[in-house]
Write a protein that binds this DNA or RNA. Structure first.
Lengths: 337, 337
DNA sequence: ACGGTATACGAAAACGATTTCGTAATGGCT
DNA sequence: AGCCATTACGAAATCGTTTTCGTATACCGT
């Protein structure tokens, strides 16, 4: 590693002068500035991030925290897509990203402690459980922060329009002639609350009833649970003619249960998912679902966060809503034909 | 942030003594050691990672580099699963992970420069294109390194047994009575080479011919390409009775082409994938495929890397083979029935 | 009583940068 | 000629640690 000292020696200048030349201070003559730049490039000099960060309190590192359980966050399609987009935008701004955890190897620490320990410039909280004390502690700290899919006082939040998405979906299903619509909502969270709200309100607006047992919980991303839940729903006195699954992935389990009951989709019963997972969109029959704009969610999260970091005086917390899109698919039958 | 200096003041000890007490030096009396530990805990003190790293040259940070193209690495199922496992094991050892890139925001740098800039303790190269000069430069550097799915001189490598996996698959297909087997192999890489080798050798051992056009490239993870490739294969004078797709995901495109040709799976034609993507395993009919042990691959990669980092004298580069597993599924018909 | 060891601690120099402040040289103005 | 700005640079402190080396104290044996 070539250090700034070697560079200064080679140039016959002091360390301070070289540093200032590199950082665009204006009390350096244009000639030396150029000379420094030239030799620096030639020697492949890059300032040591650690030393610089120690002095400036800027690491150009962002912390990312997601899914509280250790149940494979990266293999979760929605989160992976959001993270990927977030990463691209962060890197564009010169930031690297690091995962926040409570390191088990050395001394265990809270999320907040980990952030301080690593001196991250900002944090992105995605898909995390705000029931956890540690998460709230972090969210209330003085670290620049952006939150995805959850509202928190005085914090920038990126919200996928879950209420509207669900409304769109229900109206679409209703428009195709369905009246008995069941909804397996995921475990409690801001996201679920919004979707359930959208479901109930829209059903009411449309003058549709939601019979006992038509609204039932079934955790996200768990096909096995959806499988069981669908079994239960099928035992109801009056079978729904359409079931909305917690998400696309869980839908696979639900669909399995329907197949076992010898119900054809969509001839005998209709089905819808949520998320718009690319892979599942390729299946036959193509799943009716609501696609979340993961690209914009991640991108907007990064932009908001960088804004907070780089303009701490002027930037204010902001709430950004990201629209979603209905994908009609083929699993909701048109009953009016 | 409470620093070691505040801690020392509070204790009435010198900074050096506190540091030594915390780091287990043995020229500190047991009583002060305990006292320091107590107050440190009480004040929530954690040493600043930057300052420590600057002095010790150990950041407890690992670099991860993957997929050279910016085509969404995290949304690639196989890689995401491997990374997830790598991350868990690394964190267990007290390491955080950071993605390596060539930052576009600030000055563009090579992968190697980025690693030096961030002072990572080690690097994991996963699923990268060794045709790229920068990657080779990094692989030849003096940084502790582990490589997944590629062989490189004097480097620790974790290899999924692609040759054997393909052999298993071909033998299974052959065992079910198939003779005309086509293989759409992914773009050139160590992985492809091994699989193609396994395919050709096994076909030869079984005394099976590989007619013109039966072995054809179609990039990984691209259903659209597989769709086209299958169309081509179907135009051949003699249609294969089984097609092995580049991977599970690409298989979806291939299957679509077969559906369009009104070919039923597996009644009219058989199909196999590769990878064992969880999500796809839930489809009907269940795809016949070879599951790669992503858990062990990531875990072993982390272990090897930590070994190299923590025992630089004694540890040697090692090659670890990870077995894979055939998943029979339902898409390869038994012709002997 | 005296030299020699342990024992337990502290002073100070790093690590590699940034940044404040001081200052030599230059030039312009009266 | 003398004064004042301005320009261009350097010395040194600093960020928060670790680590080497010194040293005061106590203890021990003779």
């Amino acid at each position: 590693m070539t250090t700034i000292r070697e560079l200064s020696r080679r140039l016959g200048l002091s360390v301070s002068t070289v540093s200032k030349a590199l950082n665009g201070y204006k009390d350096i003559s244009p000639e030396t500035r150029d000379r420094v730049a030239a030799v620096a490039g030639e020697m492949g000099y890059h300032p040591n991030a650690l030393a610089r960060a120690l002095k400036t309190n800027r690491t150009y590192n962002l912390g990312v925290l997601f899914v509280d359980d250790d149940l494979s966050g990266l293999t979760h399609n929605y989160f992976a897509a959001v993270l990927d987009s977030f990463k691209v935008e962060a890197e564009r701004g010169g930031y690297d990203i690091t995962f926040i955890n409570h390191n088990i190897g050395k001394s265990r620490m809270t999320y907040l402690e980990h952030c301080r320990y690593r001196n991250v410039d900002g944090v992105c909280l995605a898909c995390v459980d705000f029931g956890a004390e540690e998460v709230v502690q972090l969210a209330m700290s003085d670290i620049p922060l952006v939150i995805i899919d959850h509202l928190f006082d005085d914090r920038s939040c990126i919200l996928s329009e879950n209420r509207q998405g669900m409304e769109m979906l229900v109206r679409y299903i209703h428009g195709r002639g369905h009246r008995r619509i069941a909804y397996l909502h995921g475990h409690r969270s801001t996201v679920s609350d919004q979707r359930v709200k959208g479901f109930l309100e829209t059903m009411a607006e449309l003058g549709l009833e939601v019979p006992e047992g038509y609204l039932r919980p079934s955790p996200y991303h768990e096909p096995a649970a959806a499988y069981q839940a669908v079994k239960r729903v099928l035992e109801l006195p009056e079978r729904p003619d359409c079931i909305i699954m917690p998400d696309d992935y869980a839908a696979l389990g639900g669909i399995e249960a329907l197949a076992e009951a010898a119900l054809r989709i969509p001839e005998d019963i209709s089905v819808a998912g949520y998320d718009g997972v690319k892979l599942i969109g390729r299946l036959k029959p193509q799943l009716t679902t609501v696609e979340q704009d993961t690209l914009r969610i991640g991108q907007e999260a990064a932009r908001q966060l960088l804004k907070l970091i780089e303009h701490p005086r002027t930037a204010r917390a902001e709430i950004v809503n990201i629209a979603c899109r209905l994908i009609p698919g083929e699993t909701v039958r048109d009953l009016k034909e």
